[in-house]
Amino acid sequence: MIRAVLAVLVAVALLATALPPLEAARVQSTHEEFGSIARELTRTAAELESESTAVTDRELAARTTVRFRLPQGFGTAPLDTAAIGCPSVVLDVAQADPQGCNAALVYRIRGDDATVRRFPGADLRAPNGPLRLSDSLVRLRLRYVRVGNASVVELVEPGSIGTET
């Protein structure tokens, strides 16, 4: 009986020492996966810009679709929120979506501060407001358009632009 109690106590002590490093690894893994998503979106937007000409008519704009999944599973930290859009709007800091705000990948790991991942070298915008990301497969349409005097890559959900190709 005493051996069983001692074995349980030792197991609990070992588990207590292993949990903080495990949680830190899960958080680090989640940050790395979001970094990979941001790099993929940046690369795809850069390819679209380099291979196309921006036009004002959104129906005629060059476009492509990106698919990805949010980090999930045992090796990732739980999320409170994840979205692509103007960071101040995603984080509810501002009341309205400022015109011309460059989109960023914004996420918050449960219990932590929000993290903002920019898309360096790419002018991505979310014209219909922030795109909330869920645990299911995420599909985003990127289209290269001319807005005023600027050429930008707009991010929209495929269902919000009519028929899908």
Rank of each mutant, 00 (worst) to 15 (best):
V116S: 06
L124R: 04
E154W: 05
S151Y: 03
Q72M: 07
T65E: 10
Y107N: 07
V5E: 12
L79I: 12
A83G: 05
R118N: 10
F119S: 07
L124I: 13
E40W: 02
A96K: 05
Y144I: 03
R110L: 13
R117H: 08
P20L: 03
R43H: 13
D57S: 12
E164K: 06
V116P: 04
R125S: 07
R63G: 08
D123T: 06
T81K: 13
A4T: 04
A61Q: 11
A114E: 06
A77T: 06
I161P: 00
T42A: 08
A18T: 03
M1Y: 02
E33M: 09
S136I: 02
G100S: 09
A45M: 09
R143D: 06
T56R: 14
L124Y: 05
A94S: 12
S88H: 06
R43T: 14
L22G: 01
V152T: 09
R58E: 15
R108Y: 05
V147H: 10
T30D: 01
A62F: 07
F74I: 14
T42W: 01
T44P: 02
V5S: 13
R146I: 05
S50A: 13
P127K: 05
V89D: 01
V106L: 08
L91Y: 03
I161N: 02
G75Q: 13
L60Q: 14
R69P: 00
Y144R: 09
R146S: 14
E154A: 05
R67Q: 15
A103V: 02
A38P: 00
R125D: 05
R39I: 09
V10L: 15
D123A: 10
A104T: 04
T30E: 01
P120W: 06
A150T: 08
R26M: 12
D80V: 10
S151H: 12
V116L: 05
L9A: 15
R26F: 11
V12D: 05
G85L: 12
E51H: 13
L79K: 11
A122C: 05
R26W: 11
E154H: 04
L133V: 11
E47T: 15
D97W: 07
